[in-house]
Simulated assay, not measured.
Amino acid sequence: MGFNDIIGQEKTVNYFKRAISNEKIAHAYIFEGPSGIGKVAIATAFAKGIQCKNYHEDACNICISCLKVNGNNHPDIKMIEPEGKSIKNKQIEEMQQDLLRKPYEGNKKIYIIKHANQMTVSAQNRLLKTLEEPPQYAVILLMSANSNSFLPTIKSRCQILKFNRMGQNDIEQILTSKYGMNQEEGRVLAAFSDGILGKAIQLKESDVFRIKREETIEVIENVLKKDPLVAFDAVEFFQKYKDDINEILDYILFWFRDLLMLIQTGSDKFLINMDKKNTLQKHRGHIAYERIGNIINIIEKTKNDIKANVNFQLAIEMMLLTIQEV
Rank of each mutant, 00 (worst) to 15 (best):
K226R: 13
A47P: 06
E214C: 02
I20G: 02
K199Y: 00
I196T: 06
I25R: 03
I62H: 15
L151G: 07
K85E: 03
N146Q: 09
K226G: 04
K102V: 03
K53Q: 06
F254C: 12
K102E: 04
N182L: 09
R101I: 09
F270P: 04
I292P: 08
Y241Q: 11
N73Y: 13
M274P: 13
Q136W: 02
V230D: 08
V219F: 05
I292F: 13
D233W: 13
V188M: 10
E57I: 02
K109V: 00
G195K: 03
G2Q: 03
F312T: 13
I25L: 01
Q264P: 03
F31K: 00
K114C: 00
S149V: 02
M181D: 05
C60K: 05
L314M: 15
Y251S: 11
A47V: 01
F254E: 07
P34Q: 00
M181Y: 10
T322I: 02
I20Q: 01
Q97G: 08
R101F: 12
K39Y: 00
A138K: 10
Y251I: 09
N73L: 10
E214S: 07
N222P: 11
K162P: 06
I201D: 04
I316Y: 10
L271N: 07
M274F: 10
G49Y: 02
E247W: 08
Q281L: 13
A200C: 06
K90N: 14
S144P: 10
